[in-house]
Amino acid sequence: MLKFFRKIRKELIAEKKVSNYILYAIGEIVLVVIGILIALAINNANENHVKREKEQIYLMGLKDEFQTSRVKLNELIAYNKRSYEEAKKIVSYMDTDSLPSEQELSNLFFNAFAFDIAFIPNNSLLNEMINSGSLKDIKNPQLRILLTNWIATIDDTSKQENLLTNERDKIINMFRSNENSIRTIYDLTGVSGDLGLKEKNEHLSNIPLLNSIEFENNILTFILTSQQTETVKYMPLMQSLDAILALLDKEIEQ
């Protein structure tokens, strides 16, 4: 094609047809510009394709992470609920003349206070994207906002969980005195056997705790904090998680 135009240009110059040569020159410039624009369009299309493939990899990775986090959160909500429901059963015995057996009370104590409540989501990919600036590769602005807010929400939830841990510790600390016994709980719930400890023949009773105003105050505060953790933090967190997963599904190419 270029050889053809060069031939025409030589003929026009030889014939000294200036006006025709000017028109030819303009046409040649237009042709070059069109070629450049086509090349740029192809290059941009290739770059957009690469970006789209990169975004899809991120989206699928994030979906895996948030699906795992959802399972964790769902299990944690169930455990937290079980914890404060068992604590409420203990309080119910404090309001009646009917007392539980040492075995039953030990089971209630263990189920209510044995473990800390903490949500640890899978955020390795999301943190990497934020730290590297790759979050901008996610085209959907609503999804980017939700992902950014997710980290702040997790930090805020951790503060509430720390409050709950403090309330649990206040109760557990009451078993570190000479009047109450952690060993009784361990022996009667089978924990001593799991730890390789020999069970005692006689146990110090923890039932007198049911008459303690201090214990009642601590356990009521624990119940309130547990329920607030569920309603104010965990349930909104689950809603946010579901919204993120819904957008991820929408953006992932089928």
Results as ranks from 00 to 15, higher is better:
residue 166 N to H: 08
residue 158 S to F: 12
residue 70 R to V: 00
residue 92 S to C: 04
residue 170 K to M: 14
residue 105 L to D: 06
residue 90 I to P: 02
residue 155 D to T: 06
residue 110 F to D: 07
residue 154 I to G: 05
residue 76 L to P: 00
residue 129 M to P: 05
residue 164 L to I: 12
residue 95 D to M: 11
residue 111 N to E: 10
residue 74 N to C: 00
residue 75 E to G: 03
residue 73 L to T: 02
residue 108 L to M: 13
residue 119 F to W: 13
residue 186 Y to A: 06
residue 113 F to Q: 08
residue 119 F to I: 02
residue 127 N to I: 14
residue 68 T to M: 11
residue 185 I to H: 06
residue 140 N to D: 15
residue 103 Q to L: 12
residue 164 L to G: 05
residue 158 S to G: 10
residue 136 K to Q: 13
residue 123 N to P: 02
residue 191 V to P: 02
residue 142 Q to I: 03
residue 67 Q to F: 03
residue 101 S to M: 06
residue 136 K to S: 15
residue 179 E to C: 01
residue 191 V to L: 12
residue 181 S to W: 01
residue 84 Y to A: 05
residue 98 S to R: 11
residue 176 R to M: 12
residue 187 D to S: 05
residue 120 I to Q: 14
residue 112 A to I: 10
residue 113 F to L: 12
residue 179 E to V: 04
residue 178 N to I: 11
residue 77 I to A: 04
residue 150 W to Y: 15
residue 85 E to T: 09
residue 96 T to E: 15
residue 89 K to H: 03
residue 124 S to R: 13
residue 133 G to F: 04
residue 142 Q to D: 13
residue 76 L to V: 00
residue 159 K to E: 15
residue 80 N to C: 00
residue 173 N to Q: 14
residue 99 L to E: 10
residue 117 I to M: 13
residue 140 N to L: 03
residue 154 I to Y: 15
residue 103 Q to G: 01
residue 129 M to I: 05
residue 104 E to C: 00
residue 135 L to Y: 02
residue 137 D to M: 11
residue 100 P to G: 04
residue 88 K to E: 15
residue 83 S to N: 06
residue 88 K to N: 10
residue 145 I to H: 04
residue 92 S to P: 06
residue 84 Y to K: 04
residue 158 S to I: 13
residue 191 V to H: 03
residue 81 K to W: 02
residue 121 P to K: 08
residue 70 R to A: 06
residue 132 S to I: 01
residue 152 A to D: 14
residue 161 E to P: 03
residue 79 Y to H: 09
residue 141 P to R: 01
residue 181 S to L: 01
residue 134 S to N: 15
residue 89 K to L: 07
residue 150 W to I: 04
residue 175 F to C: 04
residue 81 K to A: 07
residue 117 I to E: 10
residue 107 N to I: 01
residue 169 D to Q: 13
residue 99 L to F: 03
residue 180 N to Y: 15
residue 110 F to G: 00
residue 67 Q to P: 01
residue 134 S to W: 01
residue 166 N to M: 10
residue 156 D to S: 13
residue 126 L to W: 07
residue 157 T to Y: 07
residue 109 F to E: 03
residue 176 R to T: 11
residue 69 S to K: 06
residue 180 N to L: 10
residue 179 E to L: 12
residue 122 N to G: 07
residue 87 A to S: 09
residue 77 I to M: 11
residue 130 I to A: 05
residue 162 N to A: 09
residue 143 L to P: 06
residue 152 A to I: 12
residue 145 I to V: 09
residue 167 E to K: 13
residue 149 N to H: 03
residue 159 K to W: 08
residue 68 T to K: 15
residue 77 I to W: 02
residue 81 K to F: 02
residue 86 E to N: 14
residue 79 Y to P: 00
residue 95 D to H: 10
residue 168 R to S: 08
residue 143 L to R: 03
residue 161 E to N: 04
residue 121 P to M: 09
residue 163 L to T: 08
residue 148 T to S: 11
residue 153 T to N: 09
residue 136 K to D: 14
residue 153 T to L: 08
residue 96 T to W: 07
residue 101 S to K: 07
residue 92 S to N: 13
